[in-house]
Design a protein around this nucleic acid. Structure first.
Lengths: 260, 260
DNA sequence: CGGGGCGTTCCATATAGAGGAAAGCGTATC
DNA sequence: GATACGCTTTCCTCTATATGGAACGCCCCG
């Protein structure tokens, strides 16, 4: 967080663009629902004249539309939204955050997406630790039995968890095992984070968190992984916190605006 | 087409917003895919400095993102796109165009959307003619057997046409009838317009055309309707032309950007 | 090494945009 | 029906703002 180009606070960033910035401020206000020009002027501390001029300009370009109770988001945004969806590359967006997370924690970092009943590894950043987890981009595993996969499932209902777990185990599961799995998933869901110990007996442990797109849907997931030996219980909370923060940042970067 | 707020040509509209307009021009260029700042300056006839400043400003607000080969649409647009989708009210957008169409043709104008295997009438404008078609907003009919419904089906495959037609007729159809229906629908699809004579024996005839959203999908349909007595064969082409033009305008107004 | 492309910074200038004032309009209030 | 309020819209003046030229650092290519 020591680099200076944060824009958390909001307003000052590039100088020499007052008009543009004010117009974009207007867009931000309109996000919260239709609003009248006079209210915009008040809220944003500009004259009615200015608000009016900007609003008219945005309307003329279809960024805003006029409704009975003020200005609302316009049709141009529908078009841009669809095109942006096509242009955005989740992996590329996630990359810098993965590197940051790896730098801070030292662990390997992975991202993956769901493909039907499978989880596909899309990218990884090898950490600084000697021990590396071997899973390579492109690998596919049953979605119910990896940390990344379980994070991708957090929005599913319990029936799906049961089905996918059963299928991952090829049907060789007892009702008690299924029940235990569901209980475990409930816990993950409640915390918004998955702690997973590999069932392959290789002692690999991972912490995975889902990433949400602009629609609020889980689109990919991020995880850190290492030997359980390194990823110890007392480190767990701190690390989980960091992974979740990274996930939140990536979610924001792909357009997620928080639960609404 | 005599109203003056067209913006086909492009640039001049509201004065006193050069900066904003230039920034939006940049957005329009970026729509066509990633582009570098220097190219933007050339294409839009501004100095590199200006292009740079605007692009940085847009990036700082996440309207643009940086990629290997230039600037691309940013994540903010994903968010705005989703929200705009929620805020948009197709009926309200369509209303003025419906009134215009009714004024010009004198016929009743309807819009409706698909609900599963049904077609739901959403709004209507009563024309100037004495004869009025009684279908009221809220009415629901099998999607395969109304003009509006058939327009909503133009993107479906032939298997769906067969199924829906069969279900609308409650299974009481001969293979020959089904075949005739499919052939008829093929014709409608090719022309992008549906001419429909009511099967209720009330002599009602309609011309319906689909309206597309930003994703290119058919979201609603518009139709004009009257007694076959008024909506005669020699009027048909001219009227169909007008309905299609209205549909195109509404499509554009809800974000449709043409086939891509 | 030198040339051409790009992104970025600096600065003096003109001009674009801010905001006050006031005119239309529609809707509430009495 | 008269008066008042709030919103939109237009006009106009002045200066803060955005502009573009010049110049720098960087990378790639020949």
């Amino acid at each position: 967080m020591q680099d200076g180009n944060d824009k958390k606070d909001g307003t000052e960033a590039v100088k020499g663009t007052q008009t543009l910035m004010r117009a974009l401020d207007i867009m931000d206000e309109v996000i919260d629902g239709p609003i009248r020009a006079a209210d915009l002027a008040r809220k944003l501390g500009m004259s009615k004249t200015t608000a009016h001029r900007l609003v008219q300009a945005l309307k003329s370009r279809n960024y805003l539309s006029v409704t009975r109770d003020g200005f609302a988001l316009g049709p141009k945004l529908l078009q841009l939204g669809v095109l942006a969806t096509e242009q955005i590359d989740y992996v590329r967006v996630a990359r810098p955050f993965m590197e940051l997370l790896s730098d801070r924690t030292g662990f390997c970092v992975f991202v993956g997406k769901r493909e039907g009943d499978w989880s596909r590894h899309l990218d990884r950043v090898t950490g600084t630790q000697r021990l590396r987890v071997a899973t390579a981009p492109g690998d596919r595993r049953p979605v119910a039995e990896t940390g990344l996969g379980k994070a991708l499932l957090l929005d599913e209902d319990e029936a799906s968890w049961e089905r996918l777990y059963g299928e991952a185990k090829d049907g060789k599961v007892t009702p008690a095992q299924i029940q235990a799995y569901v209980v475990e998933m409930r816990g993950h869901k409640a915390r918004g984070e998955v702690l997973h110990d590999s069932e392959l007996g290789d002692g690999v442990r991972s912490i995975a968190v889902p990433i949400r797109d602009a629609k609020g849907q889980i689109c990919i997931a991020i995880s850190i992984a290492s030997a359980a030996h390194y990823l110890t219980d007392d480190l767990r909370d701190g690390l989980a916190e960091q992974v979740m923060r990274s996930a939140e940042q990536i979610s924001a970067a792909v357009g997620y605006a928080g639960p609404r």
